[in-house]
Design a binder for these strands. Structure first.
Lengths: 345, 345
DNA sequence: CTGGTTTTGGGTAACGTTCCCCACAAGGTG
DNA sequence: CACCTTGTGGGGAACGTTACCCAAAACCAG
């Protein structure tokens, strides 16, 4: 290996010279643009291969596109996101676009930083996954680059959205538990105060869906919601609070799988068994819900489909920025496992 | 919101005009370059704020840097990587660099695609996490942009490396199990045939470490290695094979936590208990190893430290591309939990 | 064969920065 | 007071690509 590595990159000019044509011609071939004959195509492609030329994305961005798509994800740890990413990358596989992930790190400030960085780098499109940012910021981003928002329920005239129907998901869980004979079904939600988020964030919708479904099953009097956070610790605290009640619930619907993990811990600590004494259900059908020793009943969000649709919408919008915004809502499915069973007695 | 959003981006020229100075001056302030007085700084900064100017990274890249660092990660699902990423982002937090993640999707071709894409976009530095690519490709990347390779043991004159001592990790596990009184300690490894990878990949080193440690504890005659893959399925198959032996092992050291999950499943299926009949240990100390119902004994790789060091090395190398390559090796730590105990009788 | 349309190829000016110089002024030295 | 430094500011040419236009050639109908 040559330590200094000072050799200049092959440019479009080198290709043009080598193929004995103009740079314009090469550019046309690269972009499959109108005005290049089949012979021209062949000649240029050969030169490109011979020289090992690769277009410089930064330079392209100065005039045209960068062929780069940014995906903002708020939390790399969330085991639900990889599914979405697979759907996105699979859809973009055949295209010339390259995906890069921007770590949002769960905060409005961090999210703003990555999205701005994406815009600064001239990315052609942005997919934001479950953003916590304000509506205003989402619209700011969307007004400077084609944007698709995933996992937020509010719609906007400037961006497309793809989301799972959380109301329906919550209803599936409540229906499943009620069907097993449970009446005292409690819910642990992620505390939310901001009014927009109360309307748009999935966690808020799940809590709403829980309440609606309880009423629909004639269980309105047993509605019992504890507000903590979507973390293992939050689940642990929430479950402790519930188990301390004079009449503790026989089933707990945790708003997310991590929360359910905390619940399992608290239940075991109280000397109770799952599902013998308490049934537990989660949400997201993450990888560890499927693990043998855990085997958690959960709700599957069809992450792959979400990703596929998001990528599809983004490609469409990049092709036509004026078209009216589209909202796609997908249906979740219940995955019953061994943490739910009929109540005791 | 304005649907067409045709407003032009604020450029350095706008800032220069607004501050009544030259574009060169603005550029100097932006880069903290020599030749700008404190007053100049103040004047320009004010203009930048007033206009809300943000430099266009693509354009910067044409002449200087893009202030972008690419992190290639082969598998977003691996719950060990977020730790490393946290270390990287924390270190880069204060700098002007922005991190973007490129999904490698576990394959030489996919890895080559992302790394090329990073180079095409003029990224200033690349961190490759546990790459499966050939040594030649790693050196190709490193020779065109400052590179740090994480989790590969071979060293090269063109890139820096950060890795955990897998030999030591394996030795910790064997020592722990032998200390509990086990003799029949088996190991499940990831099958590897390529000679370079046999020498460089962490999985191969763990198997080596296992053999060395067994010999060191005078247990050479009990060495028993099954080759499958680092997946849950691989662990399941490997464990089935081990349990079918005339004298099945009393302890299984799985090369990764996911593998251990498969082992737990197979053990339960065989009607045996953990750790009563069989002790199980994993590697990586992933999030689910810590989950209450699983509580898997594992080896912690200090992922955060790995990330911090990788980012630090990259910054140093970007500052001086000629400096001799550095190799950092970190020490893992054993985390005993409830899946390991003394053998039966 | 004429006058038009279509196809094909290229010249050139951007795009938004930074880098390499040069010019000038202010201060220090003999 | 001539002569160097040193500090400060700017002019202009890159960087690699694409968009916009125009010219020449080829085709076609009347």
């Amino acid at each position: 290996m040559e330590p200094p590595a000072p050799r200049r990159r092959v440019t479009i000019v080198d290709v043009a010279r080598h193929a004995q044509v103009s740079t314009t011609a090469v550019s046309k071939v690269l972009r499959n643009a109108y005005g290049a004959s089949p012979e021209m195509h062949a000649k240029v492609r050969r030169a490109i291969d011979e020289l090992g030329y690769r277009p410089h994305a930064g330079a392209r961005g100065l005039r045209g596109q960068t062929y780069t798509i940014g995906v903002m994800l708020p939390d790399i740890r969330n085991p639900f996101f990889p599914e979405i990413l697979d759907g996105i990358t699979a859809t973009l596989e055949g295209t010339e676009y390259q995906v890069f992930l921007g770590p949002g790190c769960n905060g409005e400030k961090a999210e703003a930083r990555v999205t701005e960085a994406m815009i600064d780098r001239g990315m052609d499109g942005i997919i934001m996954i479950a953003p916590v940012s304000s509506r205003a910021h989402l619209e700011h981003v969307a007004s400077s680059v084609p944007t698709v928002v995933v996992g937020r329920h509010g719609s906007s005239p400037v961006y497309d959205t793809v989301a799972d129907d959380d109301i329906e998901g919550a209803s599936l869980v409540v229906g499943h538990l009620a069907g097993l004979g449970h009446r005292r079904i409690a819910h642990i939600e992620h505390r939310e105060t901001d009014p927009t988020r109360l309307a748009e964030m999935p966690n808020a919708r799940r809590a709403d869906g829980y309440r609606q479904a309880m009423r629909a099953h004639g269980l309105a009097e047993w509605i019992d919601v504890v507000s903590t956070s979507y973390t293992q610790e939050g689940g642990y605290q929430g479950a402790k609070e519930l188990l301390d009640r004079p009449h503790p619930p026989t089933a707990v619907f945790a708003g997310a799988d991590v929360v359910a993990m905390g619940v399992l811990e608290a239940v075991a600590e109280a000397g109770l068994s799952v599902p013998g004494d308490v049934s537990v259900a989660g949400y997201d059908n993450t990888t560890f819900a499927a693990l043998g020793p855990i085997s958690l009943t959960s709700v599957d969000q069809a992450g792959y489909e979400i990703g596929r649709n998001a990528a599809r919408l983004l490609l469409d919008r990049m092709a036509d920025r004026q078209r009216p915004p589209v909202r796609i809502k997908l249906s979740p499915a219940l995955v019953p496992r061994r943490t739910t069973a009929p109540p005791p007695e």
